[in-house]
Amino acid sequence: MKELVTVIIPILEAQINPTEEKLLHHALDILREYPVIFVAGEGADLSVVREHTENIDVVHFPKHFFESRRHLGQLFLMSDFYDRFNWCDFLLIHELNSWVVKDELYYWCKQGYDYCKTGPLLANAGDAPGMLKRIAGLSEEEKRLYGSGYAGNGLYLCRIERMTATLKSKRRVAHDYRHNPNLPNADSVFWELEANRFLPHLRKPTDIVRSHFAQYGVQYQNGTTLPFALTGISRDNIHEIPYFKTLPETE
């Protein structure tokens, strides 16, 4: 019988900073009831990770995929990545810029969606393309603007079977996205704009529903309903996010 969900935590080559360590420690604590697997480059130094947990499971991929976030995005656009974990139904990809607020992972796996991720953080709401524009296709400049809105947005839940099927049916498009060095966060742009273009390959929640799944930490206002997770967290903004100001110092 398959596992329902596995948590995947990517570790890039760059040294983990104190904020990322805090996010890592919290993830291991709040998601301790689920299998957690680290993905890293071949020969990666994971000594910092081992300081937070004694026994770790690691799946290695070619080192170049972990040189930067752009390279990691290339890995997330390959069916081989998802196939490596085909012994479970879902993956929660949890980069070290996100914080799970409350353990609702089982709930979200049971909602019938194939892909859950909060939308981009855009300077103007009008920058989000409408349905007709999505079908017609965005220009390269529009894609770059849209992709920049996904900076630091490193949390998504996906159904493995549907992700691999989508990538295989859109192999050429995914290849073009993987090899576009000028497109930031190409993986997020692909899943948002291309996966359901012309034909619906993935069941996705509405904007309102996915705001309950995740929100940007800088947008969350205390007193409103907390989502499953906050994302877009970095050492540059964590001290300015109201949510973190309410946590005990031990956090």
Score class of each variant (00 low, 15 high):
residue 104 E to G: 11
residue 85 F to A: 04
residue 108 W to R: 11
residue 95 E to H: 13
residue 101 V to R: 06
residue 108 W to E: 06
residue 105 L to P: 02
residue 94 H to Y: 12
residue 117 K to G: 03
residue 106 Y to P: 00
residue 83 D to R: 15
residue 88 C to V: 12
residue 97 N to Q: 15
residue 107 Y to L: 05
residue 80 D to W: 09
residue 139 S to V: 08
residue 122 L to I: 11
residue 124 N to T: 00
residue 86 N to D: 14
residue 78 M to R: 15
residue 135 I to M: 12
residue 107 Y to F: 05
residue 112 G to S: 10
residue 126 G to P: 00
residue 138 L to A: 03
residue 82 Y to P: 13
residue 80 D to Y: 09
residue 132 L to Q: 05
residue 105 L to V: 05
residue 93 I to P: 09
residue 135 I to L: 14
residue 105 L to F: 09
residue 133 K to A: 11
residue 125 A to L: 12
residue 109 C to D: 08
residue 82 Y to T: 08
residue 133 K to C: 01
residue 88 C to L: 01
residue 135 I to V: 11
residue 141 E to P: 02
residue 139 S to C: 07
residue 80 D to S: 15
residue 97 N to P: 01
residue 123 A to V: 14
residue 104 E to F: 05
residue 99 W to I: 07
residue 123 A to S: 14
residue 96 L to W: 02
residue 131 M to T: 05
residue 122 L to G: 07
residue 100 V to W: 00
residue 129 P to V: 09
residue 135 I to Y: 13
residue 138 L to K: 07
residue 89 D to N: 12
residue 134 R to M: 07
residue 127 D to R: 00
residue 103 D to Q: 07
residue 79 S to L: 10
residue 139 S to T: 14
residue 134 R to F: 04
residue 117 K to A: 10
residue 92 L to K: 04
residue 106 Y to S: 14
residue 137 G to Q: 07
residue 129 P to S: 11
residue 119 G to W: 00
residue 89 D to Y: 13
residue 98 S to P: 02
residue 141 E to V: 11
residue 92 L to N: 02
residue 109 C to V: 08
residue 141 E to G: 09
residue 102 K to D: 12
residue 138 L to E: 01
residue 117 K to L: 08
residue 106 Y to K: 12
residue 108 W to D: 07
residue 114 D to H: 15
residue 127 D to V: 02
residue 139 S to A: 03
residue 108 W to T: 06
residue 103 D to G: 12
residue 80 D to T: 15
residue 83 D to E: 14
residue 122 L to K: 07
residue 84 R to D: 04
residue 100 V to A: 01
residue 84 R to H: 14
residue 101 V to G: 03
residue 113 Y to T: 05
residue 105 L to S: 08
residue 130 G to L: 00
residue 100 V to P: 10
residue 113 Y to R: 06
residue 129 P to I: 10
residue 124 N to V: 04
residue 110 K to Q: 09
residue 142 E to W: 06
residue 143 K to L: 11
residue 90 F to K: 06
residue 126 G to M: 03
residue 110 K to H: 11
residue 99 W to H: 09
residue 107 Y to I: 09
residue 131 M to A: 12
residue 89 D to S: 15
residue 93 I to Q: 05
residue 93 I to E: 00
residue 79 S to E: 11
residue 109 C to P: 05
residue 133 K to I: 01
residue 99 W to K: 03
residue 81 F to Y: 14
residue 137 G to W: 10
residue 84 R to Q: 15
residue 140 E to A: 14
residue 124 N to Y: 08
residue 138 L to V: 11
residue 85 F to E: 03
residue 106 Y to L: 12
residue 99 W to M: 03
residue 108 W to F: 15
residue 117 K to T: 04
residue 90 F to P: 10
residue 88 C to D: 00
residue 100 V to F: 05
residue 89 D to L: 07
residue 83 D to T: 06
residue 128 A to L: 03
residue 93 I to M: 13
residue 98 S to T: 11
residue 88 C to H: 07
residue 101 V to N: 02
residue 94 H to N: 01
residue 81 F to K: 12
residue 86 N to W: 00
residue 83 D to L: 14
residue 125 A to S: 13
residue 117 K to R: 13
residue 105 L to K: 02
residue 138 L to D: 01
residue 131 M to V: 00
residue 91 L to I: 11
residue 113 Y to C: 08
residue 97 N to S: 15
residue 101 V to F: 04
residue 91 L to A: 08
residue 91 L to F: 04
residue 127 D to P: 01
residue 98 S to F: 02
residue 124 N to I: 03
residue 104 E to R: 15
residue 137 G to P: 13
residue 134 R to Y: 06
residue 85 F to C: 01
residue 86 N to V: 00
residue 143 K to E: 09
residue 111 Q to A: 09
residue 132 L to N: 03
